[in-house]
Amino acid sequence: MTSALRFTKGHGTGNDFVLLVDADGERPLSRAQLAYLADRRFGIGGDGVIRAVRSAALDEPAARAASEAGAEWFMDYVNADGSPAEMCGNGMRVYLEHLLAEGLIELAVGETAAIGTRGGVRQVRREAGGSAVDLGRWVAVDGEPTVQALGLQVARPGQPIDVGNPHIVVALASDLELDGLDLHQAPLVDPAPVDGANIEFVVPADPLVLDGVGRIRMRVHERGSGETLSCGTGAAAAALATRLWAGAGAPDAWQVEVPGGTVGVRVIPDEAGDRVELSGPAELVYSGEIALPEL
């Protein structure tokens, strides 16, 4: 038995998502159904699925906390395999475009909205041609894991970074190394993170800093999704790790080139600890209906 489901497809620098509206949380989907929607051969195809639901309509701790904090809308985000994730930076920008297009919120350029996620409430600001997401505090996590990937002759050290979800950033020596990676298989991390992690491989530009802006290239393997053309929180983690490695005098503004385009990362000094902001474009591509099987 199948039933029709209305959807919208969108992307941020090639990081693509299936977007659904279930404002009152009346149509939860199974993990198998979510994975079906994200499947590029049998479903619609995407790096993840985002459900627009009011925070007050979800019975889970993060949603209740978001509702209490005044965030009307919750970004119910899952990876391509249907597994729930804390949040997604590119997905947040696409989600804002979806809320605006559906008339669920009104937001002028320059105004900010609070959005609930499993990683906490995030502030997203509408900008001309895109938006900027305040990802909140970030943490350079202790530990020195090694990362092995197809295309690398030896394992490389990684820098764990937490920006609301877990990342491990690996520095490579050249564009040749970066382009030679085969990320069809998940990189092997030792010791393996308990909850998994997104793995970013980074090469600095030459020069690293131009006109006060740091510049890097990045590729990423996302847990639960595989290699994607872009990862917003991954771009932030990559810039933050490179900033750490660069040491004193490193800039706060960074430009991160990913296979799907370019995003901006900005470190915002704060008395309680620096925050990080991600900016870039977002686009809704098309809408339609799909016959969703009862999986």
Rank of each mutant, 00 (worst) to 15 (best):
R54C: 08
G288I: 07
V18Y: 00
D81C: 12
I105V: 14
W73K: 08
N165Q: 06
M1L: 14
A246S: 09
A192Q: 15
A114W: 05
P193G: 08
G14R: 12
R137Y: 14
G70M: 04
T146I: 01
L181G: 13
V109N: 07
D182N: 09
R93L: 05
R219F: 09
G91D: 03
D270L: 09
D39K: 08
A66F: 05
D134S: 06
V202H: 02
S225A: 15
G273F: 10
T112D: 02
A101T: 06
Q255E: 11
A173Q: 08
S55H: 11
D39C: 06
R118F: 05
G151P: 13
A186H: 02
E257D: 13
T228F: 07
V163D: 06
P204E: 11
P193D: 11
G226D: 06
V78T: 15
V121G: 05
W138F: 15
V202R: 02
P251C: 10
P84L: 02
W138C: 08
A186T: 04
Q148W: 15
A239D: 13
A62K: 05
E271N: 13
T233N: 01
T262E: 09
S83I: 07
V109G: 04
A65Y: 05
P28Q: 14
G280Q: 00
A171T: 13
E294C: 05
A69S: 15
L152T: 15
D59C: 07
A56Q: 14
F17Q: 07
R156M: 14
L295S: 04
G158Q: 10
F17H: 09
A71E: 09
E283H: 13
P193L: 12
L295V: 01
V265F: 02
L278R: 02
R266I: 04
P293R: 07
I161C: 08
A52V: 12
G288H: 07
A52H: 04
G273W: 08
G143T: 13
E222D: 03
A250I: 15
G264R: 07
I44A: 00
G264P: 02
S230N: 03
A32R: 12
E257M: 05
Q123E: 14
